[in-house]
Simulated assay, not measured.
Amino acid sequence: MQPTARRRLLVVLASLTVALLLSDLAGWSVADGVRRGGGLVLGPVQRVLSGAPRDELAAVEAENVRLRTTTAEQQHRLDELGRLEELLGSTATTGRTLVPARVVATDVSPLGGRSVTIDAGSRDGVRTDSTVVAADGLVGRVVAVSPWTSDVQVLGSAGSVVAVRVGPAGALGTVSPPVAGDSESRPRGSLRLALVVPSTPVVGDVVRTLGSVDEMPYAAGVVVGTVTAVDPDRGQPARGATVRPAIDPDAIDVVGVLVPTARTAPRPATRPTAPTTAPKAAPVRGKAR
């Protein structure tokens, strides 16, 4: 639109606006008619003065959508890199070889528990019964492997039992999902700890994996969870307890599959030597004076 025509339209708009204000202030009966007429005139004029043509507005909106999508994708990648950095720096992976992976699917079993599919398989070095960890602790174990993906049974699934050590003393026990008929009521998603040696756990005790031969299916020393409640004393030599898992099964994303390192040579045998003690010096006796 030419500048002269735009100025004329602005004059018309200003005049109509002043007329509407005066009619409202004066309480004229024709105010409603003026307002309706002004709406009919102002509507097309406002659309003309609104700015760029429709095709330019559509292009700008499409570019904004593209930029927002790109920003969201970049932020997601940064979040994944941050979680991978946490995983590589965690105690669960220190001194171990692992295959990083992402969770690409999840499935909730009708019998309880959860399984996830990760984007790493046999071509990446993943094997059945490999330990799967996240930055905070144990996720589960690999139960099925294909060339490019693997299925993982998540800790707490029905039928899963993990041998553990509890607390600073390392008392032996097992953790498993609560079963029907359990004498204690446990929160949803928690685990049941059963000690196999006479001992009493303490709230706050850290529960870690006992470990398996060649670290399959569970590597040793991986955090399983924390004791949150101790079962009442019913005269049994070993008290049970409730354990809160270290990982949230609803938020598993970046994981690591621990690659087992089997021994290829026997451990060297050693023979302890008897401690040697230096001969005691004879006491020196002085002459009495």
Rank of each mutant, 00 (worst) to 15 (best):
P232W: 04
R8Q: 13
V179S: 13
G221P: 04
R208K: 15
D129I: 01
V116N: 01
L81V: 03
D124M: 02
R271T: 15
M1Q: 11
P232Q: 04
P198M: 09
L25G: 01
L16M: 14
A144S: 11
D205L: 07
S212N: 15
A31G: 04
D233L: 05
A219K: 06
D182I: 07
R77Y: 07
P275M: 05
D248S: 06
D151V: 09
S130Q: 05
L193I: 08
G89F: 01
L25Y: 05
D205M: 08
V48T: 15
V12N: 06
D107T: 10
Q75N: 14
T149L: 05
V161L: 11
V164H: 00
R36D: 14
P268A: 13
D214S: 14
V222K: 05
S146E: 09
S157R: 10
L49K: 08
S199D: 14
A14G: 11
S15I: 12
P279G: 08
P53N: 03
V207D: 06
E85V: 11
R192Q: 14
A135P: 00
R208Y: 13
E215N: 14
V104I: 15
E80T: 14
V223N: 01
R114Q: 15
S109D: 10
V284Q: 14
G121M: 00
A246C: 06
A5W: 09
P245M: 08
E80L: 15
A31M: 00
S115E: 10
V65D: 12
A262C: 02
L42K: 03
G235M: 03
G37V: 11
G156N: 00
A158E: 15
V230T: 09
Q236T: 12
S130F: 07
V48R: 15
L10V: 10
T17W: 10
P217H: 07
A14N: 07
